[in-house]
Design a protein around this nucleic acid. Structure first.
Lengths: 224, 224
DNA sequence: GTATTATTAGAGTCATTACTCTAAAAGGTC
DNA sequence: GACCTTTTAGAGTAATGACTCTAATAATAC
């Protein structure tokens, strides 16, 4: 594997584990047992590393959010979308953790991200239209737009939410297992729109993702 | 006004305008035309300033999220809750901007925030129960829990969403006017649960908050 | 007015971190 | 093996920012 790829992989790993801000370029170099000079030979600065990782993330997500043209959507498609998207978010979880900071520091990335967001929103709306055409949900166009936006917000904020509200502050306590609660929440968003025909089946699907709500477990703190 | 209060006010203003990370303690002191030593006489460190601001924020929010005991909830109550909460979020918008960072840096604040979150979630659920008792919505207990959580996520993420997706990267472009879109989104969350009796009235209420969706305006960037 | 305490100034410290610079090594070509 | 390009090492720099330290000034008490 090329040094460039190794730098990207190591950066992604360290960013995910510790957050982008806590990981210095020297830190990345040390992790790979290479010199800082070597790292800067391959990337002109830290932002360039982040930008390259964003490109990976973007293509990963856009690959997932496609509506099959040759067939109608099925209930299990929705599940697959959610699982794949949440897994992608997990693999690049550092991004939405510090998104504002990253975008503010890099105007080019910001523009790129905005375009990416709008494309995603369109794709999500397409998926809802597909579900409607398949008779799984029944929903107006206006509600599709609003529902897609709510879905985007809940999905992209889910790990942030967990990190802020988990019992122990330990970041390592966040595991892919906690994806489940996020999937459950998105099911709730769409549930009211289910048609009679599919309501029962989809509700049973959702039941598989009932979270153990760890964010509600009591600890000794109280609010004055 | 005491120096301590002035430091808090100035910090809040600067944090909101520029983000907590960009505002140094020297910066705050300079803004007030006092010395850094003076600032550190009143607060032992930067975290202490943030903690004090959180206490203000917490009491502001908890004041708002109360269910009147002497009367039933009315449709306009819901509107008032949303407007007051979003205004509160606006006034302390730096908090949710960097919440993860703030909490990770201060275990005490983290514990306090967790307790605050859980209390808020209970209060929001109480409000939904109140709306159900008043015959405005019809919803199961399980859905109340999930809806309350989605509401929390959308509300607390709204400004983050805007900052990431607004057309121009300029932070000053964010104005209280953009609250409206957030209110609209939360209405959408609850809309499917409205009873026949109140559906029309609430939908009309929601129409007042149709956003000009500035995050969808086209610019010249494209996604490859 | 003197003693004591509360408040303020402001220069300075120390750690951090993104990034640079020079030169050496490795790899390829003929 | 001579020449050229690519890759690497690693010491060093320059800026930043949270925080400290000493001493001066104001406020208060008696």
């Amino acid at each position: 594997m090329s040094t460039k790829e190794r730098i990207l992989d190591a950066s992604l790993q360290l960013f995910n584990e510790q957050g982008e801000r806590k990981v210095t370029t020297n830190h990345i170099a040390a992790h790979l047992a290479i010199s800082p000079g070597n790292l800067y030979y391959h990337f002109k600065n830290k932002q360039a590393i982040i930008f390259a990782l964003f490109e990976r993330y973007e293509s990963r997500v856009l690959d997932i959010l496609q509506v099959p043209e040759e067939r109608a959507l099925q209930p299990l498609d929705k599940l697959r979308y959610l699982q794949d998207i949440f897994t992608g978010l997990w693999d690049y979880r550092f991004m939405h953790r510090d998104m504002e900071h990253l975008l503010l520091a890099d105007a080019e990335l910001h523009a790129r991200y905005r375009a990416f967001f709008r494309l995603c929103l369109q794709r999500v709306q397409q998926i809802f239209r597909g579900l409607a055409e398949a008779g799984i949900i029944r929903i107006s166009e206006a509600d599709i737009a609003s529902l897609a936006l709510n879905t985007w917000i809940v999905v992209t904020s889910w790990f942030s939410f967990l990190r802020c509200n988990l019992l122990n502050a330990d970041v390592d306590a966040i595991s892919p297992e906690l994806l489940r609660g996020g999937i459950y929440q998105v099911f709730t968003l769409e549930r009211p729109y289910l048609t009679d025909e599919y309501r029962e089946a989809m509700n049973q699907l959702q039941q598989q993702f009932i979270p153990r709500p760890s964010w509600l477990e009591a600890d000794e703190e109280t609010v004055g």
